[in-house]
Each structure stands twice: as C-alpha cells, then as structure tokens.
Amino acid sequence: MTVNHHLDEATLFAFGAGTLQFSLTVLVKAHLELCPKCRCAAVAASEIGGVLLGEQDELAVGVESKAAVMERIGTATLHRLPVRTVRREDEMPNVLRSLLKDANFDSLKWKKAGPGLAVIKLQKSDEEPGFFGLLRIEPGRKMPDHGHGGTELTLVLQGAYEDAMGHFGRGDIADLDESDIHTPVVTGDVACICLVANDAPTRFQSWPARLVQRFIGI
C-alpha cells in the first residue's frame, strides 16, 4: 500500500496542538496508523509543543502531590509494547476498531442511505458540529457535487474513488477546505469504504448528513 494523499500541514499543526475536534482527531489518528510519512510529520508537530513545554512557567507542585504519584507508580502496569500499526491490507485502524468494538466491516450494521450508499454514524464528543461516520459506496456510484462549511477529512479504508484531485485508495486522505468542491466516483469492483468527519456547522448541513437525512430521515 502506498499512500499518495496526505494530511494538510495546517491540519497536522492543529492536531499537534491538540485543538482538532474529536471526530477529526480520530480521522488523523487513523491516517497516522496507515501512513509512516505523516506519523513522522506528526512527531515534528509535537516538537513545537516540546519546545514550548520547556519554556513553560513552573508552577509549584506540593510534596504530597509527588508522594501520591510515587505511590501510584508502585502498582502501575507498565506498557512495554507499542500499539501495533495496521499491517494487513484489510485491517481496520486500531482507533476505529476501538470505537466500533468490531474489527470487520461486513458485520457492522450498515444503514441504507440511498441507491448504492450505506452509512454508519459514529458517536461524536460533546456538542461538536458536523458529520462523523463511515460511508460505503458501491462501485460506479457517484456522489453529488458538494461543498461544506469547514474542514472535511475523508480517509479511504477499502476500495477506491476518483475525483478532480486524483485517485484515492486505501490509506489516502482527502483534507479539504471549505472552498473545495468534489465529486467522488467509486472506481474498481469493490465498494469503497471511507471514514468521514467534518466540522460543518449545522446550518451548512454537511453532504453526508444531508444524504442521510434525505434517505432515512435522521
């Protein structure tokens, strides 16, 4: 698997600072599991935070606080092995698997949302805006033209699609701005499964949300 479409550096910057909303953070994490290049770039973003941490004002920490931590380390279970990155071609990123509590796309409860389109909505955090979920689009299907209100991330997990920006296969991420409009068409002979999150405010219903609304009336 070669990843050709990566995260925008402004998105990596915001991810590094920890200011992306939950759904977008999950998208970034899922891409990082599939993409060594962006993993490396994410470390660079953390280094900025590291420099600022080093310059930070030091606030007094009480002796009882240190004693409490020293006591807790006595019973803590150590992590010795890193979280394994995704290796197999059909594997689901860990971050998504832990959200879905399932490792297999086929056994998920897909909701039909129109001809050739099925959706699974994922739980968002707090009141954050936008759509967050999985889309499964059948081969040859075309999504309607759409723009959206803010940042939108689309990560391909299975199959492929094409739009004006090129060919997107497994691991590729489309990191789109509010001004971008795209018309993805699914290519190849398997359904394309994408993880999608955006931060479109509700007054600009995001396109996946609008589709879902139209077909199943959520």
Partner: peptide
C-alpha cells in the same frame, strides 16, 4: 496534550486518543 483533551471532553465516546503516534518506523 492527550491527557488534557481526554479531561476536557465531557461526553466521552469510549475511545482513548492516547494511541501512540510515536511508534517505531516499519
């Protein structure tokens, strides 16, 4: 950063963001 994000989320989906992005390269 991850700990402060986890703390700030009131309504927590059951996933920790603390999956490491520091994993050794393949």
């Amino acid at each position: 950063r991850n700990a402060s994000i986890d703390r700030a989320r009131r309504q927590k989906p059951s996933v920790s963001l603390d999956l490491i992005e520091w994993e050794p390269a393949d």
